[in-house]
Design a protein around this nucleic acid. Structure first.
Lengths: 141, 141
DNA sequence: CTGTCTGCAAACCATTTGCAATCGT
DNA sequence: ACGATTGCAAATGGTTTGCAGACAG
């Protein structure tokens, strides 16, 4: 799970400059379970940094993703959605309200299920498990 | 697995018109394990239908996906990739060569692994399991 | 015939890029 | 200081859309 102070330390250590914009994006993501889009992160950060540019948001998100501090976990309505929780876990995308939910899962079972795949010679860098349908809330109506 | 004749029957039965363009897209996808993009399907169909428009390709693909005859299984380099095999099965996306591989998997194990998720009240319409990394071929070089 | 589909070209829109000015180190 | 990073505005590019004409049923 992303923590701003640890991420800052990590980035500094890698030689990256610690700009207010980068810290602001990290803070917007810390503890955020909404799987926000770049636009949503932009809106959050605008509150404290009224001059920030959307291009900077994209820059920072790209950096954080490359450094493995966050993941792009889905694409909903054409927009990438980001998750500060980089542990492998399934997501559920609601086709009606476009919310992205984390799905709790028995980690042992998951590891067991996937341990012999993909085939030899393939090197896996990330795994995505995504359910799509209609969520509890939307099904009630 | 998609079969052109069955798909045609299905679409006709639903009241859709059977146009040469629709049949051509179906034929381009039948038995295709390359997970082609819209552009790639366009190129295939152009050989037999030199006047077809890319917009028509997108139209037909949208229709086939809505009708559950094909799936959009991934987005690689910004491009949707399509699979005529609509059975749930994992994919491996190579970050170097951008090939999309089908991954064989023990179906029973998969069902067992996923049977109690997602949580009650959520209605699942599709499941995607995607590995990303570098493929056997690219790792050799 | 009639209303669905197609082909064309323009529009869309999330994301990327080029570049001069800014600011972290 | 110096070079990495930002903000702005324009470009990119896969996909979508509007519409007149074509064609399947």
């Amino acid at each position: 799970m992303l923590r701003t102070d640890e991420a800052v330390k990590y980035l500094k250590n890698k030689g990256y400059r610690i700009t207010p914009q980068r810290v602001a994006v990290l803070k917007a993501l810390e503890g955020n379970t909404d799987h926000p889009s770049a636009e949503e992160i932009f809106k959050i950060v605008l509150k404290t940094h009224p001059n920030i540019s959307i291009a900077t948001i994209y820059n920072v998100l790209e950096l954080l993703e490359e450094e493995g501090l966050i993941n792009a976990v889905a694409r909903v309505n054409g927009m990438k959605r980001f998750d500060p929780n980089t542990k492998v876990h399934p997501h559920f995308i609601c086709r009606k309200c476009h919310k992205v939910y984390d799905i709790p899962i028995d980690r042992e079972k998951l590891v067991d299920c996937f341990k012999e795949i993909p085939p030899e010679g393939f090197i896996t860098e990330s795994v995505k498990i995504t359910f799509e349908g209609t969520c509890k809330n939307c099904n009630r109506n």
